[in-house]
């Protein structure tokens, strides 16, 4: 499941979303500009400390959220191991770990609504081109909300498949998944309309 705001309260939760997202940009940029494995390693350690500070439960959640990185790290290690540039591989792996670890920390401790508000503010110059910045924030919320719903639907379709055959589900499940998603989108559009549409009422 997509990592949402953590239900474990941390001291970082009340911090404003704007500076937190700004820090993510700054840290990520400096990681790739500086590029030194020592610097990346220091950020990884700092992240670990920040995860550990609120307690073991939060540390475990933070590490769990990094699990999806392991295949990439393994791939990097393999590539650089084969090409004999293990040192460079380590540097890349540390950069990746530091960047994702820090970004996850902010995601876990920031309410989505606040994040959407920052996105909306950041997108406000686009108003000049006729785009509505509020919609970016709403789109962000919809993606986070419906990613697990779609994943669940995918599982259901795969189970219906398994119930009737011993073969592995193939590309054939994509069409029902896509059609189901369109169907769901129609209902969500109705739900949005039922509560006032996608743009706030202008007073």
């Amino acid at each position: 499941m997509l990592s949402l705001t953590s239900e474990i309260r941390t001291p970082y939760h009340p911090w404003p979303a704007g500076p937190k997202l700004g820090a993510v940009c700054l840290v990520t940029a400096s990681l790739f500009i500086i590029g030194s494995p020592w610097f990346s390693g220091a950020i990884v350690l700092a992240c670990l400390g920040l995860y550990a500070l609120p307690g073991l439960g939060f540390l475990r959640q933070g590490l769990g959220a990094l699990r999806m990185l392991w295949p990439f790290l393994a791939l990097i290690a393999l590539w650089h191991g084969v090409s004999g540039t293990l040192e460079a591989g380590l540097a890349v792996a540390l950069q990746l770990l530091a960047a994702v670890g820090f970004a996850n920390l902010v995601t876990l401790t920031t309410r989505l609504e606040d994040m959407a508000a920052v996105v909306t503010r950041a997108a406000s110059p686009l108003r000049r081109f006729g785009l509505r910045p509020e919609r970016f924030g709403l789109a962000l919320a919809l993606v986070v909300r419906f990613t697990p719903v779609l994943a669940q639907r995918g599982d259901q379709i795969a189970q219906s498949w398994h119930a009737r055959t011993s073969r592995r589900p193939g590309w054939q499940v994509l069409a029902p998944l896509a059609l189901g998603a369109i169907d769901d989108a129609t209902y969500v559009a109705e739900a949005l309309r039922a509560r006032g549409g996608i743009d706030p009422v202008e007073e």
Partner: peptide, 20 residues
């Protein structure tokens, strides 16, 4: 088909924001 937002508070406050 009805819940638009990922957390309960956001879901409930959405309609209120739409009401201005």
């Amino acid at each position: 088909h009805q819940i638009i937002f990922p957390t309960v508070l956001e879901e409930i406050s959405f309609g209120l924001r739409q009401q201005g």
